[in-house]
């Protein structure tokens, strides 16, 4: 095989070639190579908060209200969980298409004074009909999306609403 890499195309060799032109008094602009250092994207689970738990919950309820979302009245056992229903705009307008997205927002305590808020997708509902698109309900009338029933699911509407909520929380705080 005569497949090879062209030596003069390697950055160091090309740079030497261009610098030699400078010695020949040719007007060559010094252009620096783009940095290969790629700051590694650090991912976090949910969003972290150092505020007091009640303040965090208050901020979230206020943000949800500002964004026009609805939520189930919290039960005694689930004070740190918010079950949200959110009208999702955009997309193909059709009464068939469910456009109420459900989301569960959960506050976690990692350690004293260190809390975490996680958002989780919780299925779709059709507008106004109140009926959920999936026929499974657990005892307190909540909807549990059968995970394995969904085989093709687009996270982007959920991710988009999450960015809206994070933006609202960031602006408020």
């Amino acid at each position: 095989s005569t497949i090879a890499i062209l030596p003069s195309s390697l950055p160091q060799i090309h740079r030497a070639y261009m610098m030699s032109k400078i010695q020949q008094n040719q007007a060559v602009q010094k252009v620096n190579p783009i940095s290969t250092k790629k700051s590694k994207t650090r991912w976090h689970f949910g969003i972290r908060s150092r505020s007091y738990p009640l303040d965090v919950m208050g901020e979230i309820y206020r943000a949800l209200k500002n964004l026009g979302a609805e939520w189930v009245k919290p039960s005694e056992e689930e004070l740190w969980t918010i079950r949200v229903r959110w009208k999702y705009g955009g997309g193909v307008k059709s009464d068939v298409e469910p456009d109420l997205m459900r989301m569960v927002i959960q506050l976690f305590q990692l350690e004293p004074n260190n809390y975490l808020v996680d958002f989780k997708f919780d299925g779709w509902e059709s507008n106004g009909k109140g009926k959920s698109d999936d026929n499974t309900k657990d005892d307190n009338g909540q909807h549990d999306v059968e995970e394995d029933e969904i085989s093709s699911f687009s996270a982007y509407p959920f991710l988009h609403l999450s960015t809206q909520l994070i933006l609202e929380l960031a602006v408020n705080s």
């Binding site: 497949i3 090879a4 890499i5 062209l6 950055p11 783009i34």
Partner: peptide, 12 residues
Amino acid sequence: MRRSEDFEGVYT
């Protein structure tokens, strides 16, 4: 000269 140092080169 803008190319990053880890450019692998041109194949011939």
